[in-house]
Structure formats: structure tokens, C-alpha cells
Design a protein around this nucleic acid. Sequence first.
DNA 1: GACGATATATATCATGTTGATATATATTTT
DNA 2: AAAATATATATCAACATGATATATATCGTC
Lengths: 177, 177
Amino acid sequence: MDVKTLCLGALSLGDATGYDIKKLFDEAFSHFFAAGYGSIYPALEKLAEEGKVSYDRKQQEKRPDKKVFSLTPVGREEFIHALETTPPREKVRSEFLVLMFFAHLLPPQRLAEVLQEFLDENNKNLKVLEDLERGGCPPGIKFTIHYGLATTRAAIECIEQSRDALLHEVYSTQVIQ
Amino acid sequence: MDVKTLCLGALSLGDATGYDIKKLFDEAFSHFFAAGYGSIYPALEKLAEEGKVSYDRKQQEKRPDKKVFSLTPVGREEFIHALETTPPREKVRSEFLVLMFFAHLLPPQRLAEVLQEFLDENNKNLKVLEDLERGGCPPGIKFTIHYGLATTRAAIECIEQSRDALLHEVYSTQVIQ
DNA sequence: GACGATATATATCATGTTGATATATATTTT
DNA sequence: AAAATATATATCAACATGATATATATCGTC
């Protein structure tokens, strides 16, 4: 699934500018799909060429002109077709786990820092998700929040449980070079 | 962190061809970092230009010639420097959660299928990780396995616990269009 | 013994994505 | 009054994706 397809999804929730869609990516989609302006604006341009979205240019006196995009019927069908055929995959790119994999090459101080930093970030994400959980939303969206909470809590517990032993073991097992 | 850097990491484990490194990505790194030939071969070429890896061309009678790459001292320092400065991030791209977010646009049959398929894949990954867990390996690597087990188990439990209610709710909440 | 599948090995390429930067102005915070 | 944040679009080099091409060997199986 590419950014073009998820832009159709974003517009299925209501008309929006590229800027609005970026905010949606940063808020509602942030814990499972990332995209920046560099992929969103070209995606909208191509979708417009293909007739899957249309837009109104809204003149604004004190701001750059807005392009408010809407999903066309063709675009809506395209999106539903994508949902029906996209396999439910999940892909993780974890710099954190790369650092753990090569823990034996890290100075002890740095390994401790890395664990703390990653723990902090997870606790921050947890708070965001806990706030979202309190607000009401459709069951599908609620599920994405519960799933995020479950995996984030598991990550935090795993780190808290193994941290001390890990810091100890890495430097007793370590071959001095 | 880019593929170039992780190729240095791969070579820190021992000399290898591009083909060998691809296997390492598919096995040891697969649950936290993906890369294909299309990024590995260009990465090795650039690293060689920069003097961070060297290679021996091994002629083989019955196979295409091998290029066996080795980490140079410069490359090793570069890798350790990268480990010391890379922030411990984690990024997920989940087509599964996109499908859940837009569950209200999926036919009931398809939603059930998606959940089952994703559950099956997670159980498959779980078995791979459980097998890895039994084999002995350094503490840092062991940690990446435990972390994978913890988050995968949390994902499976979360789906098993909410699946039935979700299937029910989505289609009772749904606005018929 | 033949056939298909898998393994060894490198390489390329169009398309898509990343992350930063540029441009301009308004509003909010310090 | 200055600095930071928000509104809004757009571009770009560098990097990554995923598929495909090329050749041969080996392994299983019917």
C-alpha cells in the first residue's frame, strides 16, 4: 500500500488540503503509517490526473491559496478495491533492535542510554494512545488504538524486565578486542 | 540508519558476499530490518569506493564469480561511530492496521479473513522466534528475540481477545450507504 | 532419468519514499 | 519585540522497493 492509496483513505473521512492530510498522517495514522509532504503532494497531483480526486482552489487573502481535495466516485471505488485486495502485512524498521543486536560493540554507558531513551519514547507514545483511548471513535479505529497499546506495553515490560541483566551480561560475555 | 550501515554490521560478523548478506537480512535481521538485492549491491559498491570494505574476487568454475567482502579498519570505525550516534527509533508500516482503521468500508467476510490471515502470519513468526530462542547466542541478539516474542505475543492476544466483538460491532455501528 | 523447484551469485531499473529545504505570512508565546 | 509555532504549497537529491534478467547446480520426486 502506497501513500496515494492512503490519501484516498484520508479523503474518505472528508475533504482536505495536502496540509490537512499531513496532519492526519501525523495524528491518526502516525503509529502505523508515515508520510511527509514529499510524498503527499505528488500523490495528490497524480490522483487528480487520474480522476480519483478533484479539487477546488480556495483563494485566501492572508494565506497561500488552498487546494481543497475531494474524493470522486472513481476514487472511492479505487480505495475500497485496494482495501479488499491489500494483504494484511506489517513491517518494522527498528534502529533500536539494530543497536541491541550489536550491543557488544557499544560502550556500556551508551547501551544504558539507548535503553532509557527508547523506554522514554515508548512511554510517551503510550500516553498519547491512552488519551486517544478515552475519546469515542468507531470500532475499527478503536481497535488500532488497543493494538498500539498492547504492543507498546509489551515492549516496555520486556525492556524493564531484561534491562539490568542485559547490561550485566553484555559486558561479562564481551570479548575484549 | 541506511542499508550501507547495516551492511557494515553484517560484515562485522565475518566476511561475506552480497548474496550471503541478503540471507542474513532475511534470517537474523528479518524481524527488524528489511533489504533486498536492489539496495545491498549498490551499498557494497559505494562502501568499496569509500574504502570501508574491500573484496576478493573468487573465481568459481561452476558458479558466477564471488566477490567476498571484508570490513576494513575504516569501515569498522564507521560502523561503531554509527552505533554510537544513531537514535533508537522504531517505525512500523502496517497495512493490517490501515485495514482495521477503515474496517467500516470492508465487507464482513473480508474483515474476518484479514484478521485470520494476520493472526496466522503472527503465529508463523512466533514459531520462528521460538526456535531461535532455543539456540544459544550473545545477550544482545537474545534480547532482540525476546523483544520480538513479547510484541508478537501481545499482538496475537490483542486480536484473539477483540476479534469477535469487533466483527459484531463494526457491522452494527456501520452506517449503510 | 527427466522435470520442476530451490539454491548459488550478481546486477539493473522504473517507480516510490525520505527528509530536508524554500517560500510567505499570521498567530501565539515568551 | 522577538522567537516560535501554525498555515499552506512545492521541490529535490539520495535512498529504497520490488521485480526482473542471467547462468548454472543441486535436490527431491514421480
